[in-house]
């Protein structure tokens, strides 16, 4: 069963928590970009070290960052099998899998150190760059925050239903992957309906509290960029510069 701090914002005091969400998402974007570009040993190791550093500085239990990876264990296994089937070399397979694993870890670090509202605002600011038809930024932020909240609500309800089912004899924690999969399929419809109802209630609550998109949203640690934000940007730009000069 889930711990309350798993897959949710961990309210700690750390450098990573203070970094602006847009910059954190920019860092993730750079990582994905480097993963897709031509492979280089030094760049790859530097990237992984950077992610490790982020993990250490975030004050979140390191093992918690790998929990998302553990959830993807079967997908990783399938990746191995498929790539092996296409006669790729073991080294190449390992590199691709490691890139994927550290993408998940990076995602976890961002998720554990940023509130869902901040991720919403961060994503909306990035999307706003490509906003050609002039949709209000606050509406985009609201849209992203709602999506993130719906996903969290779904998994919360699933967790509650699994505990409830466990008590009623539908064993989850002590069962194998096939039984777990069967339980997911069985619960999906109910959990979806239940989480949808919860979101409706949330919408009503927000309505009665006179909440609307025009309310100004603020970052938890303020809008101003600090030294660590600039350092974060510099390191990421450094990766790109290294790629252009040495690898390309």
């Amino acid at each position: 069963m889930l711990n309350k701090l798993d897959y949710s914002y961990n309210d700690e005091i750390s450098i990573i928590h203070r970094i602006n969400p847009v910059i954190k998402l920019f860092g993730l974007f750079i990582y994905v970009l480097i993963c897709l570009l031509k492979y280089n040993n030094y760049l790859f190791i530097a990237n992984l070290s950077f992610i490790f550093l982020l993990m250490l500085l975030s004050n979140v239990n390191i093992l918690r960052n790998f929990k998302l990876v553990w959830k993807f264990k079967f997908i990783i296994l399938i990746m191995y099998v498929v790539m092996y089937h296409y006669q790729m070399s073991i080294a190449d397979i390992n590199i691709i899998v490691f890139k994927f694993i550290f993408f998940l870890v990076y995602l976890s670090v961002i998720y554990y150190t940023t509130t869902k509202e901040e991720i919403g605002i961060g994503l909306s600011k990035i999307v706003n760059i490509f906003n050609l038809i002039g949709i209000d930024l606050r509406k985009i932020a609201s849209f992203f925050t709602n999506i993130i909240t719906s996903v969290i609500c779904f998994f919360d309800t699933l967790g509650d239903t699994l505990i409830s089912g466990e008590i009623k004899g539908n064993v989850y924690t002590h069962s194998n992957i096939i039984d777990k999969y069967k339980l997911y399929v069985r619960y999906f419809k109910k959990v979806y309906k239940s989480s949808k109802d919860k979101m409706k209630k949330r919408k009503n609550d927000m309505k009665y509290k006179l909440y609307n998109d025009n309310i100004k949203k603020r970052y938890k640690y303020g809008k101003k960029l600090g030294i660590y934000d600039y350092l974060f940007i510099l390191i990421n730009i450094g990766f790109i510069v290294f790629y252009i000069l040495k690898v390309r």
């Binding site: 309800t157 509650d160 239903t161 505990i163 409830s164 089912g165 008590i167 009623k168 539908n170 069985r186 619960y187 109910k190 959990v191 239940s194």
Partner: peptide
């Protein structure tokens, strides 16, 4: 044993 958790009545 039987256990009833408060506020967790998810019927399948």
């Amino acid at each position: 044993m039987a256990f009833m958790i408060d506020d967790n009545f998810n019927f399948i």
